[in-house]
Nucleic acid binder design. Structure first.
Lengths: 110, 110
DNA sequence: CATATTAATCGTAATATTGCAATGTTAAGA
DNA sequence: TCTTAACATTGCAATATTACGATTAATATG
């Protein structure tokens, strides 16, 4: 089917999956890393930085924007992208809660 | 194409994406949460716990096993699954490094 | 041995994702 | 206004993912 049965899972589970999915592709990881590294707005060099065609980068940016992880503001003919710190922290909190589940666990049992 | 151009990205980027991808589906999030909650081996009740068919669960378990996040040992006619703590911690470290990138960042610029 | 139980695998349908060429849009500069 | 630039959108081909029915494999149990 290719279609996830999201309705049988909790909002929390779907939220975790939603955020994680966006990192599930190396191009988006690379884009985010670059945005962090530059530390100031990037305007268009992502296409040169990463080795993918312009429409492909544009599409990945769109997905990141849809989740709210990045912001884009038009700057003349170019567009300036940067991390949305607030949303990033929110996501970090949610994912960390999931990743830190193990503290109570005392070891493997298999 | 549906095929990610992994060769143009660094090993680190591909590794982050690989781990994240596995959480990119709520069923796998649910499976992991349940394995943590039970805190002892779960053998087959995952199918009842989560509302998906047995082959579907089996497939998700396979992916989790492939990455090394869970271990399974045969226990009679059933199979006992549990978290692979060592691998989980390794993954946590890698993802945390990615999620914590923001510390140096001083705010949005758009 | 016959049968039931449990889980893996196979095959397949439906849908999603990835990537890009072609094209559209918008704003700057000549 | 015309042209160029920087992106976004559209449309499509190739591949991946998700889900499940049917089947298979392995082990208990009567």
């Amino acid at each position: 089917m290719g279609l996830a049965k999201t309705e049988i899972f909790s909002d929390e589970q779907n939220e975790i999956a939603g955020f994680a999915k966006v990192f599930g592709h190396p191009a988006r990881v690379a884009i985010l890393q670059h945005l962090f590294k530059i530390n100031t707005c990037v305007c268009g060099d992502l296409v040169n930085e990463i080795g993918l065609a312009q429409p492909t980068i544009s599409q990945h940016l769109k997905e990141l924007k849809l989740l709210g992880l990045i912001k884009g503001s038009v700057e003349g003919t170019s567009v300036c992208y940067c991390i949305n710190t607030e949303k990033w922290l929110e996501m970090k909190g949610i994912l960390n809660q999931f990743l830190n589940q193990d503290i109570a666990q005392q070891g493997d049992c298999c």
